[in-house]
Design a protein around this nucleic acid. Structure first.
Lengths: 218, 218
DNA sequence: TACAACTCGTACACCGATGATCGAGTTCCG
DNA sequence: CGGAACTCGATCATCGGTGTACGAGTTGTA
């Protein structure tokens, strides 16, 4: 009777309850787990649908070893996304959101931009592998923060109220992603991106004070 | 010695020179070709990476028949995109672009929106299959039109000049795509979309009346 | 009407990715 | 130090998609 050899411990550990991190793993196993997660992010960034083999190569280890940590490709992608999002939370939670909504928005966008640029490929990959509900669930916190800020801006008369917050939110996402794409394509310098994004979003979201609209319909 | 049976005639007909359309095809073959193209669009819309089998099923015909018209999956996707783009050209070329740039832009966006909504999935699929250069080449005409309009708007002082036209163009694309995505997700009514798009883009692109540009180079 | 064009189904070879298994080597950790 | 945990490479079965081949049936067109 031979005992199971491969498969460390952690993987996703049941998960059910709270975020019970890796229980009793050996130190180097944890290190490898981290390396796999990092490799996943970069591999996916290079090629949106990289295989587990590609990822393993990127991490500099055997394909089976990766399977030892994550039973399926889907769980691997999810873990990588979760990791990336958690890391992002650490940054975003430090951004002060009080004071002028416009200024706060600007700060939040500047910080978010970097994160979006890093993990959007991962997110795209995850969208193919995971149910949409799970994706939304993971974004909940970051999205809630931005939504709350936009809402406050509306209440204080700084942001326009003739458009629903959901659309402002979508626009924000979309413009940031567009900037990321332009950077990736080499058509935009990464350092200029935050300014380009602000330059679009701030006037677009500004409360219509003295009707600076161009065409003016209705 | 049996003669080749399958494979109609047309496919892409050498192509080299001009756009020599289907030469001597039987009437029903042409009809089927059109059906395949349409099915490709709808199938891809349902599932971004639908197989040739899926497409054939959508068209209500055998998989081999599809291969009879298009030798490879890539050529099928390309043909579908070309067809979709040509159809779009017919619409877009009818939009009057003279007069106030803001108004013209609004008209162009409204017309483009529908087309984007219809063929963006196809475009996404094509991006995975075709070289980026080919994609750009196919968009050349539509993109050129929009670019020229934006440029005129800048020259006439209606659109801001502190951002490059390329970025305005990207923003336009991205916002329209975002709207399409929201519609697909059921979070936005298709009829409202054009207004939502304008509402964002027009103030975002408007010339900064009080010239307080922040970055302002050169 | 008769031929050629076209369609259809089945079947096959090929490829790449997934996920499991085994056996042996290596490394951590008590 | 010694056993357990972990890594590694090779191998295998499986699955799904692509593209090809054949043979027979069906339909447009001269």
């Amino acid at each position: 009777m031979t005992v199971k050899k491969t498969t460390p411990r952690g993987t996703t550990t049941g998960a059910s309850g709270g975020g019970g991190r890796a229980a009793n793993q050996r130190a180097d196993a944890q290190r490898n787990r981290a390396r796999i997660l990092a490799a996943t992010a970069t591999a996916i960034r290079k090629n949106p649908d990289a295989s587990v083999g590609d990822i393993a190569a990127e991490a500099g280890m055997g394909r089976v070893t990766v399977y030892g940590h994550f039973p399926t490709r889907a769980e691997l992608i999810e873990a990588a996304l979760v990791d990336s999002l958690e890391r992002g939370e650490d940054v975003l939670s430090g951004v002060p959101l009080d004071g002028d909504p416009g200024e706060a928005f600007r700060r939040l966008v500047a910080s978010s931009w970097v994160l979006v640029d890093q993990s959007r490929a991962l997110l795209a990959a995850a969208m193919k592998e995971l149910p949409a509900a799970r994706i939304r669930e993971l974004h909940e916190k970051a999205e809630g923060r931005m939504r709350a800020l936009l809402l406050r801006g509306q209440r204080e008369g700084v942001f326009r109220v003739d458009l629903p917050v959901s659309w402002l939110l979508t626009t924000t996402h979309v413009v940031m992603n567009g900037a990321a794409e332009e950077v990736r394509a080499g058509r935009l310098d990464a350092d200029d991106a935050p300014w380009f994004i602000e330059a679009i979003l701030l006037p677009a979201f500004a409360a219509t004070t003295s009707t600076t609209t161009i065409g003016e319909g209705a």
